[in-house]
Design a protein around this nucleic acid. Sequence first.
DNA 1: CCTGATCCTGACCGTTTGGTCAACAACCGA
DNA 2: TCGGTTGTTGACCAAACGGTCAGGATCAGG
Lengths: 205, 205
Amino acid sequence: MADQAQPILTRIQQKNRDLILEGALTVFSESGFRGATVDQIARAAGLSKPNVLYYFGSKDDIHKTLLTTLLDMWLAPMVRIDPAGEPLDEVLGYVRAKLEMSRRFPRESRLFAYEILQGAPHLTEILGGSLRGIVDTAAATLQGWMDQGRLTPMDPRHLIFSIWALTQHYADFDVQIRAVLGPGHDAFDEAERFLENLYRKLLEA
Amino acid sequence: MADQAQPILTRIQQKNRDLILEGALTVFSESGFRGATVDQIARAAGLSKPNVLYYFGSKDDIHKTLLTTLLDMWLAPMVRIDPAGEPLDEVLGYVRAKLEMSRRFPRESRLFAYEILQGAPHLTEILGGSLRGIVDTAAATLQGWMDQGRLTPMDPRHLIFSIWALTQHYADFDVQIRAVLGPGHDAFDEAERFLENLYRKLLEA
DNA sequence: CCTGATCCTGACCGTTTGGTCAACAACCGA
DNA sequence: TCGGTTGTTGACCAAACGGTCAGGATCAGG
């Protein structure tokens, strides 16, 4: 998890690697790993295909770099749950933060969704390792609050799953939601109110 | 939506088409459309590649057939919500039915998840058409119950979204859930209790 | 048992794809 | 300005892919 000692990158390396990762994020999140082609990534990045492969050895390399780079950011809100805070505020804050991530970073959400759907070939060790640790910590915090009677008792891990499911759904299934709601709806605005209400009801001791 | 007048199929056609669709469901649900190959489907079905393409003109054809065939089954539980029933029972019944579908038909769930993630290229007209109609009907039923004070008022469409998200999550993100929970957990059993509790709390007027 | 329709497959084809490479261009410190 | 490092690309390759086809095997009705 700790950043390796990065080799110093030249200005050009920095810029082009960023362009590639940015383009690849768009392409991978639209088509999945197999559906994306190096050519598409190159076009999205504004570079030639060989040039893309000059900076990253392979398509797989780009994908793996994206996943591991973005995982920390993706999990950050859960780590910020504060055991010293007010239980309801902390959980509602987490829900809000997670929904905000779905709103602002739908590509990242879809990237992870594809990876998990596929069986998480690039994330297996992380899933059972640091992710599990982070969830365990958060679950312990929640369980503590429940034991103190400050939160309605329930399975804390499934509470976390529910937050993931409900917030990421709005990014990952965006097409479906827009089709069902029709025009003139801001699904995320509505979701924010709906989820705030849901978790308030669910959690108030 | 109504079944076309099917040409009569021979015994062999019936059997082999079923074998192909069954194998394709497995392969597509594991790898997505682009990730799946006709060869894999053929192997999963126990047939040769040309033979698969003898029964279905193209890979696309198999995929489209699967999606449209399974969509009715997938949406069936929502259609069964009975406006004359007891509101809480009806919703909890729907939740239970939907979770049971995730448990018993995870491949179908993933098939649809891939399709929606991809932007639903094969389902766009259905999404904005019959699906929307079905959701509108169910939403109207829910809204009616809320207006009568028999259900806590909330946005009925987002209530439906929440049920989709929470139940399908256990099929689609199964790998992640198993990694986080570790061995010795039946995620679906736990989810059944958790969701029953969640929706009971949320909906009791 | 015959015969036409159905079923099946090895060999093949054109395209797409990830990746390589030699050669050239741009950069940059000395 | 020079020289080596870094950056860039057109042309190319082998493998994988979706799909075709001619011809042979099998089936089912008469």
